[in-house]
Design a protein around this nucleic acid. Structure first.
Lengths: 385, 385
DNA sequence: TCTCATTACTGAACCGGTTTAGGAGAAGAA
DNA sequence: TTCTTCTCCTAAACCGGTTCAGTAATGAGA
């Protein structure tokens, strides 16, 4: 009688009644479950063809309810519109989709209430795990979690981060090899793990290379107390102005990140100083756009995409292994990217910053000849356009 | 006997047996469904307290299966790691989370097979609607869809996009008001709707303002055939070199987008030309980072975040209204953003491009005095730092 | 005392899959 | 012929909610 009611999408039941088979059989064949060994090829094909013909698609909720799995994870980021989180997400996505997972994104914008609430909402949505990007975690979660550039070490949570010590070393080594001795520094925002480890790396490298770190030339970025929030170049701009105001000589700036480096470059230019001829500036991160600046920014690249991939891999393996943790911390290698904002220091050139420079001679090293000259003077370090 | 077995999370059944009530009653109270009017306050409180105490959380899949709704939508973007899509997503997210929705993201990287496959996968995941960002749609979908900067108009799909004609007009008006007459143009990639409408806007504005568009000074960005793919500044760089190679005079460039504008600025600088003093350059989009360049890029801002919000609003309203379409096209207002890459043209200054400029005099308008001078010379147009 | 309405709740179907234990029928063995 | 063994398939429980029709108990009204 009701063999084919008017119903909408094909269900397992409608498909099986069309085939004059039980739902069990059809389900078994369609999922190619172990029991399918007992079904002859002919029947299998008949089922598969009918499924195709009636465009049968298993209801996701019913399936997930039964399997108690939704193949979904949550990604919590501070801010989506910046390049940082989206580069990481891009890596996460690659790894996830490859394995049949999807992901929810939520951005908390540094708001503590949302940092508290979103993980709960995600878990209510039955995510099987959570990736925390640059986000502090207060309580342990009831699902596996992996953090990227985690602000604190939480028991049972794997942290994926760049090897900050190594990155800081690379930056310092580059600057020092170029002959710089009087170096200014931007430390990161207080309360972030990156700040601590990166700064330690700078100090270690400095002492190893015989460089003195002057407190007057060391400024801290101040945005936000426990959490960075969106970093802005303005911070770097103001800090650089402060640096200039000290009247102290320096020929290079090692900035905590690219954003502050960009602001600093701008401040130097506005003050009539040339970058890199008067002051070399090196950033950290290699954000999208660092290569388009004038001068193109020398920096230490964080392999953000790769970090996302690793985080996703880790999370998935913890999901299938029932949450067992391997390493607690996974470091990825930073990469020195030499562009145009750094060049060799002629020691005697180290500018006295209180002097108003000759503005007419302001030039950015953008002209090919100048660049060639700079490059030729650097025997070891490769200068890429 | 089995009042409280060892089970894991609290289910509706375990909660109701603990309360010695039926699951129906508990469900009614917890969801505050209409039938809850008939339940006395005392019982309600007892239920709510017990739910709290036992930390009851409704199983998402069971609930969705029953309601036939998952409060989830899908977002399809070409590329996540760029700033474009993530700015839009940020707006989408705002609107969605506010209304209790979450979203899946998938990026197809311009691959036709993925453009075909991902919508299906999303629909299999029971999304209630799809937002297509800058993505061509071949077949109509079985769920409501909204496109942003849609490449073609698909029946039943609302398209949200910037008013390209207006944006082009703003750019042209700005350039022409500054006195420029010999203007070069970058047209967008072929096959994109933005290209067509934006170019039409430029032509209309030009004819309205009595500006002649010279074919020799009009170049098309070439990446990808039917789809842009990730745009790169290299395209703009090469096009600008070509422009220079023509030997034709021009004092301004109106670029299709910021990325190509950035490349062009770089090419001009590398060729010993000053921006904006020798050539004014205006972009389109106002991508993240356009404000950090030297010179900071003048451009026409697309309110990407707002576009995301609107798309989400539209989609949700179509979901609740059962897919009825209101307007077929929604345009948002572009905004002229004047920074430093454009300045007034002194007609007689229009450079002869084949001449190798005086490189020592290369200067970028970065010095405050120069900027002041430029600003002072512009009576109508406000120059922002 | 009987009817009727109201109050406070419940039984059971339903959403649409998965899975396990088992059964009908045919073939082979005794 | 009867028992056993396969082969092929199914009944029914289950996942964990939502919801509708209905019912027992109480009180009011006639």
């Amino acid at each position: 009688m009701k063999l084919q009611a008017h119903q909408g999408p094909t269900t397992l039941r409608s498909l099986s009644s069309y085939l004059k088979l039980s739902p069990a059989t059809v389900s078994i064949v369609i999922n190619d479950s172990p029991a399918a060994k007992a079904i002859p090829e002919g029947t299998k094909n008949r089922i598969l063809r009918a499924a195709q013909k009636l465009n049968y698609r298993a209801n996701f909720f019913a399936r997930s309810l039964s399997l108690k799995r939704g193949y979904t994870i949550g990604v919590l980021v501070p801010e989506l519109s910046e390049g940082y989180a989206s580069a990481i997400m891009s890596g996460i996505e690659d790894e996830l989709l490859k394995r049949g997972y999807f992901y929810f994104v939520a951005s908390h914008r540094g708001r503590p209430d949302l940092i508290e609430e979103y993980p709960r909402m995600l878990i209510d949505r039955a995510v099987e795990g959570i990736v925390l990007v640059n986000t502090p975690l207060e309580h342990p979660l009831s699902v596996p979690a992996v953090s990227i550039s985690g602000h604190r070490r939480v028991k049972g949570v794997v942290n994926v981060g760049v090897d900050n010590a190594k990155g800081a070393f690379l930056a310092m080594e580059h600057i020092v090899k170029l002959g710089h001795r009087e170096i200014a520094f931007f430390k990161g925002h207080p309360g972030s793990a990156d700040t601590v480890y990166r700064w330690k790396g700078v100090r270690d490298a400095a002492s190893q290379m015989g460089i003195r770190i002057r407190p007057e030339l060391t400024l801290q970025l101040q945005r936000g107390a426990t959490h960075p929030g969106p970093s802005l170049p303005e911070e770097g701009y103001e800090n650089a102005q402060q640096l200039i105001a000290t009247g102290r000589r320096f020929s290079a700036l090692v900035a905590f990140n690219d954003i502050s480096a960009i602001g600093a470059v701008r401040a130097f230019l506005d003050a009539g100083l040339r970058v890199p001829q008067d002051i070399s500036v090196i950033g950290f991160d290699d954000i999208h756009g660092a290569a388009y600046l004038t001068p193109r920014l020398s920096t230490v690249r964080q392999p953000l995409r790769r970090m996302g991939e690793i985080a996703a891999e880790q999370l998935l393996s913890r999901i299938v292994n029932g949450g067992k943790v391997g390493a607690q911390q996974i470091s990825v290698e930073p990469e020195l990217v030499i562009r145009e904002s750094t060049c060799e220091c002629r020691q005697d050139d180290t500018v006295m910053l209180s002097v108003e420079g000759d503005r007419e001679a302001n030039s950015f090293g953008a002209c090919p000849e100048q660049r060639r000259r700079v490059e030729a003077s650097l025997p070891k370090v490769q200068c890429r356009g």
